[in-house]
Write a protein that binds this DNA or RNA. Structure first.
Length: 302
DNA sequence: CACATTTGACCCAC
DNA sequence: GTGGGTCAAATGTG
């Protein structure tokens, strides 16, 4: 699915999210056009010396666009309700310890790229080196703690090759005025608006809480509107890097960097990604879309 | 000056 | 005793 050079970008809904989405579309288009030019330049051949510099510049442009997309996508996905309320809202249970009742908060975790702005205002109150982890963990609480808001979060660098990847664990819900922030809770943004109307839907099929397959659909302007399937015994044991890469990098698998959603009992059901992220983002994608469950499934870092 | 961050000390569950 | 979470004084920043 290669977008034509003169093609216009999609027109999105006229709201804040739509504007962000439009920016994402534009940058994605810029990425694709740069790829096209890079391809044309590389085909000229025969004059390697003067073409070496443009080659390096193309790489840098593509990298810059990719980073811009990541940040935009990260902001978008954390600012709107991609996640079902059951999982955005952590719950708490009462635990009896001796004669005392102790409230145990069930946290939820998401993996995100920096900057991890989730729309709330946080105040850092501590930092500790964690025994099991090479990196330190930062402790944040809501700026409006004085107003009775008990929300806290812990931010820790993920133990994988990507230094920009962070694990953010949330405890308690915001009860402060920030909770009425329309960006966070906009009810009119429905899941189907967020899910890609474009190609590259990776759908995870689950069976008894185990992921059994990964499907990739190329639907928009795909030469063959076909659905290809990569069968994986259990997605949490992904080790077939090559097959995932081949799908992710296939020509009719272009589009937004990624989106992720979760339905039902927290089992990630669909997501999409585009070729620039290859397997690295696949790992991120899986972890992101299974926020709070990575401890259970133990997704690997490639 | 007000607010945020840093960092060593303290608390507490295990 | 140890490790993780929180406190609070010192320090930084706009």
């Amino acid at each position: 699915m290669m977008m034509g050079a003169m093609e216009k970008p999609l027109i999105m809904a006229n709201n804040a999210f739509g504007e962000t989405e439009m920016a994402i579309q534009e940058i994605t288009r810029g990425y694709q056009l740069t790829k096209q030019i890079q391809s044309m330049v590389s085909k000229l051949g025969g004059e390697p010396a003067p073409l070496q510099l443009p080659g390096v510049l193309f790489d840098e442009v593509l990298q810059a666009l990719t980073m811009a997309l990541t940040n935009l996508k990260s902001t978008t996905s954390s600012s709107v309700c991609l996640i079902s309320d059951d999982h955005r809202t952590n719950t708490s249970i009462e635990i009896k310890s001796g004669s005392r009742k102790r409230r145990k908060v069930i946290p939820w975790t998401k993996v995100t790229y920096a900057p991890h702005d989730d729309g709330y205002q946080w105040r850092k109150y501590g930092q500790k080196n964690i025994q099991k982890s090479k990196s330190s963990r930062s402790y944040y609480r809501c700026t409006y703690k004085d107003e009775g808001c008990r929300a806290t979060k812990h931010v820790e660098e993920k133990d994988c090759n990507d230094p920009h990847l962070f694990s953010v664990t949330y405890y308690e819900n915001h009860t402060c005025r920030a909770n009425s922030d329309p960006i966070i809770t906009t009810p009119e943004i429905e899941l189907d608006q967020l899910l890609p109307k474009e190609p590259n839907l990776f759908s995870f099929e689950s069976n008894d809480n185990m992921f059994s397959s990964l499907k990739v659909s190329g639907t928009q302007q795909s030469v063959n509107e076909q659905e290809r399937s990569v069968d994986l015994q259990n997605i949490h044991n992904i080790n077939d890097k090559a097959s995932i890469e081949s799908v992710a990098n296939s020509e009719d698998c272009l589009g937004p960097i990624f989106e992720a959603c979760s339905e039902g009992e927290g089992i990630p059901t669909s997501a999409c990604l585009s070729p620039p992220w290859e397997v690295m983002s696949m790992d991120f994608l899986v972890q992101y879309s299974s926020f709070g469950y990575d401890d259970i499934f133990g997704f690997p870092c490639f």
